[in-house]
Design a protein around this nucleic acid. Sequence first.
DNA 1: TGGAATGTTCGGCT
DNA 2: AAGCCGAACATTCC
Length: 262
Amino acid sequence: MPELPEVETIRRSLEPRLTDRRIVSARFLSPLAAGGHPEELSAQLCGERITGLDRLGKHLLIRLANGTLDIHLRMTGKLLWNVPPGFYARAVLSLDQGHVVFDDIRQFGRMRWLPPGIDPPNLGPDALGLDFGTFSARLGGRRGSLKALLLNQSVVAGLGNIYVDEALFCARIHPLCAAAHLGRRRLRRLHQAVADVLADALAAGGSSISDYVNAEGAPGSFQLRHQVYGRAGEPCLCCGAPLRRIFVAQRGTHFCPRCQRR
DNA sequence: TGGAATGTTCGGCT
DNA sequence: AAGCCGAACATTCC
């Protein structure tokens, strides 16, 4: 499940291979991958020169001489460098040197073109490198649960189910806790926890739960260091209490009932 | 065997 | 406004 650390890992590995390359053709094996308009998107990409790669939240932004190719991998999307397109290949970007395969089992992932100067709308500030002032201003006074707010991409961009659970455990804060009555000290702790978890995950090349791999086909290793995610029923690595799994905002939520009091 | 669970986003509804 | 819910999709797991 590509969240910020996974998308950033992909961005870093693809950036040197794609920058200054020219898109020779964009072939869509599934129209869904192009938002239902494969011919139009193909025409927008064909012949374009790639000037660089950015990331905003979970969006990978391939900057073109004219506009941006915005890629969202959603749940099972992968970008693979120079592999033969497999059964689940949904698009192939052929460059003047090499090609990128957009592979996506469940077909939730999307590619779209954005005009010059336009970034994906409705996104809050990127979670990576977010300063405390902005972080507290985004969360402060809001009534929803921390879990729901941190998952909301218009509040903060880039966190998904895994890293929200891990960050809340790291800060020892209950996922159902309302942002509005979070004191400054705990807000500080949460901000630090988000930064720490993202940095560690990035250094480990992200988390591979079911099928995430980077552009070279290699898995990440941060799943080996998850404290709570996917560990319901197992002992808390801090206090030994059995970890719990509840539903918050329609999402499986993992936490330690002893370390993370409400 | 089939129904639920998996997780991200969006749109519709309240 | 903000939250809840289902839909999009395919595979895995009981």
